[in-house]
Simulated scan of single mutants.
Amino acid sequence: MKYDSFRPGKEWKDTNGKPIQAHGGSVIYIDGIFYWYGENKEKTKPDNDIWHWGVRCYSSVDLYNWKDEGIIIKPVTDDPESPLYPSKCMDRPHILYNKKTLKYVCWLKIMEKDGTQDMTVLTADHILGPYTMVKKGYRPYDMSSGDFDLAVDDQSGKAYYFFEKVHSELICAELDETYTGVGEIYSEHFKNGQPPYVREAPAYFERNGKKYLITSGTTGYHPNPSEAAMAEEWHGPWKVLGDPHRNDRSMTSFNSQISCIFKHPEKEDLYIAMADRWLPNLPETEGDGFYTGEAYRKVEQSFKEEFSGIADKKEKDEETDYGKDDTSIARYVWLPIRFEGDVPYIEWQNEWKI
C-alpha cells in the first residue's frame, strides 16, 4: 500500500506491508532523507517478559511511506545485566548529530527493576549504525532520570537535555561538547510535586525565537492531558499555556502521548506533533466514560492517591502494572501544530496532507 496522507490512529505499515515499530521516537532529516527511529515493540506481548526488541529505524522521502532500515541498536539477549536486555525497560531513544565530533549520539532511558531510572549513551558514525555503547547506568547529577528530549542550539552548537527528575520536576541540563554527558549547568522547572501532575515526555521545539515544551502528565501508558509552555531562554522561566489539544473532552490528548515535535525543513511553518497511541483499544475498554473524561478522572484520582501514600501495596501494584499492556499493537497520532499568535494548538483530523 502506498500512502499519500496521514491518518492519525490508523494502522500504519512500512513499504514491506508490516506495522511500523518506532515508538517513543523521533525523526531526523539528513541529506534529503527523513529517518524515523524508535522502540521496536514487535515482540512485546502481555504474556512475555519482553519490553523491547531494540531500536528500529525507517527512511522516507515524503514522511508518508517508510522503508524499514532494520534494527540499528540490537537487543542483547545473552546478558541479563545489559541495559539492552529485552526485559529491561528501554524507552524513548533520541539521537543528535555532533558537528564537532562527527558522531551520531543516542541516549536511551532505562528503567531498572527497583524503579530507579538511568541513561545509556551510544555513538555511531552513521545514523544507521553500528552503535557503540559509551555509557551505561549513567545518572546525571545523581538524579533518577526519566522521559527526556535532546535539542541543539543551531547558532552555538550547544546541546540541551530536558528530562523528568522522576516523580519530582523537569530539569534542563546543558550537555558537554561531545553530547555524551551533562555539563555543570542545569535548571529546575515545573515543580508539581507528585504524579499524575509531574511533567514527563518533554518534546521541545522553537518558533520565531520562542522556545516551547509540550509535556504529558505521569499516568503510565494511560494517556492524559498535555501541557504546553513557552520561554525566551533555554533555562526559562517557562510560561504555562495549557493543554494544546483543542476540544478533547476525553482529557487524553486524543488518546496519545507526544514523543517529538518535528519541524518540516522545507515548509515555512509546519510543525508536526509525533505521538504514540499506546492503548488503541482504550475507547472500547473504558466505554462512554472515555469520551466524557470520566475514565481519565478515575485514573487521575488513583495516581493521586497512590503517590500520596493512600493506596495500599496491593492496589498500587495493580494500578501501575503497565507491563501487561499489549504495546505491540500501539499506533501513531501525527497532527500538525497550529498557532494563534505565539500559542500552539492541536486539532483532531481524521486525515491530512503536508
Rank of each mutant, 00 (worst) to 15 (best):
T218A: 13
K99N: 12
P93N: 14
Y291D: 01
K165P: 00
H23F: 07
E42Q: 14
D4V: 09
L335W: 05
L128F: 05
K210L: 06
H245A: 09
K165S: 04
V152G: 10
N65A: 12
S60D: 09
P283I: 00
R277P: 04
K298A: 02
V105C: 13
M90D: 08
R277V: 13
R139V: 08
E318S: 04
N192R: 06
A151V: 15
R338S: 14
G183E: 09
D312R: 11
K165D: 05
K314I: 12
S145D: 05
P225A: 07
K191E: 04
P93S: 13
Y197V: 06
I261D: 01
Q301T: 08
I214Q: 05
P83K: 02
P237N: 04
N247P: 03
E69S: 10
K316D: 02
F262N: 08
Y296L: 02
R297E: 06
F339G: 04
T132N: 13
I71D: 08
K211H: 15
T132R: 15
Y179H: 09
P244F: 02
E188G: 06
A231E: 02
Y29C: 14
Q117I: 06
S259I: 08
Y131T: 13
L175D: 04
A231Y: 03
W352Y: 13
D312A: 12
D326C: 06
M230F: 01
D342W: 04
M133Y: 03
Q257N: 07
Y212L: 10
Q117H: 03
P223L: 01
A311L: 15
S250E: 02
C260A: 13
K113L: 11
V343K: 15
P283R: 00
M230N: 01
D68H: 07
K267A: 13
P265M: 00
K239D: 04
Y179D: 09
E233I: 07
K324M: 02
V121S: 11
D269H: 01
Y161I: 09
P46I: 05
K298V: 02
H23S: 06
K165R: 09
E112C: 07
K41L: 10
K109D: 05
K191V: 02
S302P: 00
G183K: 05
